[in-house]
């Protein structure tokens, strides 16, 4: 769930902001003063013309539909967050780190980039439009442009252009939900639009399971499907 924002914090924040912007503000979302969190992979504000979230991590309806065809190796879940953006949009590093791989065997064609961070996680930037010019071992800083967004098949920039962002475990053998690890105003990043990537598949036998963006399971590559429900909705 979202960190609870108390009235005291809001009031104090309002006053201090009014007095001279001396303390952190809500500018980067609901997490106040958590410098160890990752940032967003795009600079500037979201918008329908530039970038927005189109698919959450986890038990999405789209992932359920493609649980075998696309996501079978990832236990049937969408094991990243999709940010739709025009092909060629600059992608920035979500945290300081060291380049771990360029176009390695980690999926998300046609190009990918992995950055290893001091907290042990590895960020993966997928469906890039071109091979990153960074070198393995090179240091990158949070906010630095590291790649450019593309589209899975490399050509269909009109309708499917997006960045697939993963947070992998240190051994690269799995992923975790990026939402709690990133400092962002998540409720606003979908721009209010509906989509099957933004809704979660319902297991009618356990309807509260994995129904929020904050409550999604970790994925371990190669293990059994997590969402092969006997009574799903939609079917």
């Amino acid at each position: 769930m979202l960190p609870k924002i108390t009235r005291r914090r809001v009031i104090g924040l309002g006053l201090v902001t009014f007095a001279g912007t001396l303390l952190p503000t809500f500018a980067n979302g609901t997490a106040l003063g958590q410098p160890d969190k990752f940032g967003l992979p795009f600079a500037g504000q979201p918008g329908l013309a530039n970038w927005f979230v189109r698919q959450w991590y986890g038990n999405t309806r789209w992932a359920y539909r493609q649980r075998r065809a696309i996501y079978g190796a990832g236990q049937g879940l969408h094991f990243g967050v999709d940010f739709f953006a025009p092909c060629g949009s600059p992608i920035i590093a979500i945290g300081d780190g060291i380049v771990a791989a360029v176009d390695g065997p980690y999926g998300s064609a046609p190009h990918n980039l992995l950055v290893r961070h001091p907290n042990g996680y590895v960020s993966l930037y997928g469906h890039l439009s071109q091979r990153s010019t960074l070198r393995v071992g090179q240091q990158v800083r949070r906010g630095e442009v590291v790649a450019f967004s593309g589209v899975p098949n490399g050509t269909d920039c009109d309708t499917r252009a997006h960045l697939h962002l993963e947070i992998r475990t240190s051994n690269l053998g799995g992923t975790v939900n990026p939402i709690p690890l990133m400092e962002a105003d998540w409720p606003n990043l979908t721009l209010g639009l509906p989509d099957e990537g933004l809704e979660f598949e319902i297991n009618l036998d356990n309807p509260t399971q994995w129904q929020t963006i904050y409550n999604q399971p970790a994925v371990y590559f190669g293990r059994a499907l997590l969402n092969d429900f006997a009574r799903p909705w939609p079917g």
Partner: peptide, 22 residues
């Protein structure tokens, strides 16, 4: 000093109204 005064004022504001934010 101004900052401290403002924060104290914020704390007072909390005690006067608790039902409008959450």
């Amino acid at each position: 000093l101004l900052l401290i005064l403002l924060l104290l004022f914020a704390a007072c504001g909390e005690t006067t109204n608790t039902a409008t934010l959450s």
